[in-house]
C-alpha cells in the first residue's frame, strides 16, 4: 500500500524546469539565430549536459570559429574564445596544451569543421587531444546565405547549386573514427534527451570526442528545398532521416538506406595527447605543467 501512495505522490509532484540563468550571460538573449533554427535546442542540451557534471563554470572553455554555430560562446557564461574561420581546433589545441585541466568544448559547424578547418579536424582526431568537438550539422552555410557545404546531400538545392548538388557528402562520424577519434557519436536536435546523454558522455570521456549533431536551417536549406516549416524539417530530416543504433540492429539493410545512424558509434581507450606530453616532459627532466 505504502509504495502505491508513494508512487501517486511522485506522480503529482510538479516538474521543475531547468534553470539556465547560471550558464547564460545576462542580457545576451534573444540570440541571433533565425526562428526555428535547431542551434538553440542544441545549446540547451549542452548546458544541461554540463550542469550534470557538477563542475564549476570556470572548468570549461568554449572555443568556436566562424558561422552560425560559432556564435554559441557569445551567449554562455564559461571561458570563451571566438576565433578565425575553421581554426577553432587550432586555438583549442593551444589552449588545452597550456591548461590541460580545462575541459575544452569546440562548437563548430559543418562548413567550419569539415571544409575550411578540415585539416585541423583530422589532425586533432589523430592526436586524441582531450577536446569535445560538437559539429552542428545543418547541411548548409547559413551565415553566408546558403551555399552548399561538404555535408549537403546530393540533389539538394543551395545558393551555389541551383539545379541540385552533385557532390557526394562527407560522413562526419566515419571520417572522425578513421582519423583516430576515440569517442564518436551522432545526435539530433529533435532527440533532445538522447543528445543530452551523448554530450554528457562525451564531456566525461578522456580523449577526442566528435559529435555530429543533425539540426535544421529553415531559412536557407528549408526554403530552398521546399520544407513547409521548422517543425516539418525536424520531422523529416531529424526524426525520419535517422535510426538509433539499437533499432538499426534489428532492421534489414534496405530499410536503413539513406538513413543516418544515431547514438554512440565508437568508443575506445587510447593514450591522451596531453598525458603523453606530460610523460615526455618528465622523461626529459622538465618541470610539470600547471
Amino acid at each position: 500500500m505504502e509504495t502505491v501512495t508513494a508512487a501517486k505522490k511522485k506522480k503529482k509532484e510538479k516538474p521543475v524546469p531547468f534553470d539556465y540563468s547560471n550558464y547564460i550571460r545576462k542580457g545576451k538573449l534573444p540570440h541571433i539565430w533565425c526562428p526555428g533554427c535547431g542551434h538553440g535546442i542544441v545549446l540547451k542540451c549542452m548546458l544541461r549536459a554540463i550542469a550534470e557534471t557538477g563542475r564549476p563554470n570556470d572548468d570549461f572553455a568554449l572555443v568556436s570559429g566562424i558561422g552560425c554555430s560559432s556564435r554559441t560562446p557569445g551567449y554562455v557564461n564559461f571561458n570563451t574564445l571566438h576565433t578565425l574561420h575553421g581554426r577553432a581546433l587550432a586555438f583549442a589545441t593551444g589552449l588545452k596544451m597550456a591548461k590541460p585541466n580545462l575541459k575544452v568544448i569546440v562548437t563548430t559547424g559543418d562548413g567550419d569543421a569539415l571544409a575550411i578547418g578540415g585539416n585541423h579536424f583530422i589532425h586533432t582526431c589523430r592526436r586524441n587531444l582531450d577536446i569535445v568537438i560538437m559539429v552542428y550539422n545543418n547541411f548548409i552555410y547559413g551565415m553566408t546565405s546558403g551555399q552548399f557545404s561538404p555535408t549537403t546531400l546530393p540533389g539538394m538545392i543551395a545558393t551555389t547549386s541551383r539545379y541540385g548538388n552533385i557532390d557526394p557528402p562527407f560522413d562526419v562520424c566515419k571520417m572522425a573514427e578513421a582519423a583516430g577519434a576515440t569517442f564518436v557519436a551522432r545526435g539530433t536536435a529533435y532527440h533532445y534527451g538522447e543528445l543530452e546523454k551523448i554530450l554528457h558522455e562525451a564531456i566525461m570521456h578522456k580523449g577526442t570526442a566528435v559529435i555530429d549533431i543533425i539540426d535544421s536551417c529553415p531559412t536557407y536549406y528549408g526554403r530552398f528545398n521546399k520544407f513547409k516549416s521548422p517543425a516539418d524539417m525536424m520531422e523529416k530530416i531529424e526524426k525520419e532521416g535517422t535510426v538509433s543504433v539499437k533499432q538499426a540492429s534489428g532492421l534489414p539493410p534496405e530499410k536503413l538506406e539513406g538513413k543516418l545512424l544515431r547514438g554512440v558509434l565508437c568508443k575506445k581507450e587510447r593514450l591522451e595527447y596531453t598525458e603523453g606530453y606530460a610523460k615526455l616532459i618528465e622523461k626529459a627532466g622538465g618541470s610539470k605543467p600547471k
Binding site: K14, P15, V16, Y20, W33, G40, I41, Y190, Y192
Partner: peptide, 18 residues
Amino acid sequence: TRCQLCDLRCPDFAIQVF
C-alpha cells in the same frame, strides 16, 4: 500534462512550464 516538451524543444529559451 506538464510533459515539458515545449520547453525542451524551444530554441529560444522562451517557454517554461511549472
